[in-house]
Design a protein around this nucleic acid. Structure first.
Length: 570
DNA sequence: GCCGTTTTCGGCCCGACTGTTTTCAGTCG
């Protein structure tokens, strides 16, 4: 069972306990679930080593339940909880502004057990009669149902980020604001986000709110208060803006950037110093005297910490590292010297090598690597051996046309079921480098998939392992594979692990990057772009690498042209 | 249900907004 699956079970228990109306237990289960999601190790391995109790938030009771779950694949406790409420209530709880209390209330009073029955009850105006509900409630519920039914889940970082930057720039310029920033999971560059959080510091909050709520792309103003407003944009994204006084900007930015777990530790540190930390300031508990608030730096400093980049504020050891002055110096987008996974018109991309080479020159890249698909991937225009040989000449010509950018010719070569590559070694050795990729037979058992990839890694022509787990966010689970074993094998064979920057992929993910760092395997961050515009996806790959604590030296394509030439020649 | 240089019980982050309340509960982040 994967960590994410185990976490999902605990989240469901938390929701069901919340329906029961018990206190504190739901949060205890959620904390344990988050820890397991963030775990670098495989939960099954932790279980095998009898170390479940070492996971933060896992005590005797939850450890016992995990043991049952991981041993039998089932959990009696969850089955029992499920019997107490109809499953539809969890869906009702997914409606915004409708929580466990209301869900149970509707169930007890009107015997409403799912979204359809709720919709019917609203349409027949049976909700209005209940205590605490009016006509407005019915309207909100109806909107909420439509939202839940049309919802695909969380929004990909790569989709939300450009939208958020547009809103931010609009408010910044129109309201003439200096102090405005992304906050929340988007500022931390999580791979998926729930909604867009913005924070502004201004002594004229009303004016800022006027500007914000009249953003041209607004579908619906969900709420509008003096310091906090929420919009739903035409694309369905929700944007929240919180305005605080100018002097409070740093405190608010820190607070609303999170993560929740990071802030809980910070607040505890404040309490230990006789202080209190909230969105307005770090202040003395007794007197209320302000200790720090204007900048994030001031707040971290007053707590005895070095400030850390938003991407690592997840309570995964960054606070300890800060205390010991051992924070990593994270890789930055400007460290990237080239892109080694780019598709062209020859397979399923939509630009020519020449067009892409010029685009790379404009970006200041020193090199680019073209890696069209291999023959087996017919659906994506995989190249025959003859076509591949032909593209070697094209690449040479482009290299002469655009001398500022060194052009490498590689292949995104299928790793077949037996671990062999899709071209004979005699062909592969004529390329500058080879990226191996799994695009077929995702359902192989773990051992077989691991052997398949390990075989490919041992091929002397392989340079990079593409998107190592094959997951696609909101679409496809990663295939079953021993990730740590693969990382070790990659390191031993001198093969780099790719961090594919495509928004659906981000594979390796942040936790895997951290694992690669621990193992000592080299990571290469690629855009996997199929168009010129997609070269920009590099931003999200670098952000994910930063979330995984990677530093410049741990990433292959921070090296300059000469070093890469030497590396690929080996 | 978890956790502990204020330990084995008694806490658990805390403030803003909404709707329908005539003072607040529920929800959210």
């Amino acid at each position: 069972m994967r960590n994410a699956e185990v976490a999902r079970v605990l989240y469901e228990i938390a929701d069901l306990l919340e329906l029961q109306g018990v206190n504190f237990k739901p949060n205890a289960y959620r904390k344990a679930a988050r820890s397991i999601e963030n775990l670098t190790d495989d939960i099954e391995q932790v279980h095998k080593e009898d170390k479940l109790r070492d996971i933060p938030g896992v005590g005797d009771a939850i450890a016992k339940k995990l043991d049952e779950l991981l041993t039998t694949g089932n959990l009696g406790y969850l089955e029992e909880l499920r019997k107490q409420f109809p499953p539809g209530l969890l869906q009702i709880m997914a409606i915004p502004e409708l929580g466990p209390k209301t869900a149970v209330h509707l169930y007890n009073e009107l015997k409403i057990t799912n979204l359809d029955e709720l919709k019917k009850a609203v349409e027949e105006h049976r909700i209005q009669g209940l205590k605490g509900f009016g006509p407005r409630s019915e309207e909100r519920i109806l909107q909420g149902i439509a939202l839940v039914e049309g919802r695909t889940g969380r929004m990909l970082l790569g989709r939300a980020y450009p939208v958020a930057m547009q809103v931010l720039e609009y408010v910044r310029s129109k309201a003439n604001l200096e102090k405005i920033s992304l906050a929340g999971s988007l500022r931390r560059m999580k791979e998926t986000i729930g909604d867009i959080d913005l924070i502004a510091g201004s002594d004229d909050a009303k004016w800022v709110m006027d500007v914000f709520t009249t953003y041209p792309e607004v579908e619906d103003v969900i709420m509008r208060g003096p310091t906090k407003s929420s919009l739903r944009l035409k694309g369905g994204l929700q944007v929240d803006l919180r305005v605080v006084k100018e002097v409070e900007y740093g405190a608010a930015l820190q607070y609303f950037t999170g993560s929740k777990d990071h802030n809980i530790v910070l607040r505890q540190m404040a309490i230990d110093k006789g202080m209190k930390l909230n969105e307005y300031a770090l202040s003395m508990k007794e007197t209320g005297a302000v200790v720090a608030r204007e900048t994030e730096e001031d707040i971290y400093k007053a707590l005895g910490l070095e400030i850390m980049p938003p991407e690592i504020r997840e309570n995964r050891g960054e606070i300890e590292a800060s205390l010991q002055h051992k924070l990593p110096k994270l890789i930055e987008l400007t460290d990237i010297m080239g892109d080694l996974h780019v598709h062209t018109k020859a397979s399923d991309g939509d630009a020519t090598m020449e067009e892409i080479a010029y685009a790379c020159k404009r970006r200041g890249y020193e090199y680019v690597g073209f890696t069209d698909h291999s023959k087996r991937l017919g659906v994506a225009g995989g190249l025959s051996v003859e076509e591949l040989r032909g593209s070697i000449d094209v690449a040479r010509n482009v290299s002469e046309l655009v001398p500022e950018v060194r052009v490498f010719l590689g292949s995104e070569c299928e790793i077949l079921e037996d671990g062999k590559l899709d071209y004979p070694n005699g062909v592969l050795k004529d390329l500058d480098y080879v990226i191996g990729a799994v695009h077929s037979k995702f359902n192989m058992p773990k051992k077989e998939m691991t052997d398949r990839i390990a075989t490919a890694l041992s091929n002397e022509n392989l340079t990079i392992l593409a998107h190592p787990t094959g997951r696609k966010l909101e679409q496809r689970e990663p295939y079953a594979v021993d990730v740590e074993g693969i990382m070790q094998a990659a390191k031993d064979n001198g093969v780099c692990l790719e961090l594919d920057s495509f928004p659906e992929r981000l594979d390796l993910n942040d936790v895997h990057c951290r694992q690669a760092k621990d193992v000592g395997a080299t990571v290469v961050i690629d855009s996997d772009s199929h168009s010129i515009a997609q070269l920009d996806f590099m931003t999200f790959g670098v952000a994910t690498a930063r979330r995984g604590w990677l530093e410049k030296d741990e990433v292959l394509n921070t090296k300059g042209r000469k070093q890469i030439e030497a590396f690929l020649k080996k």
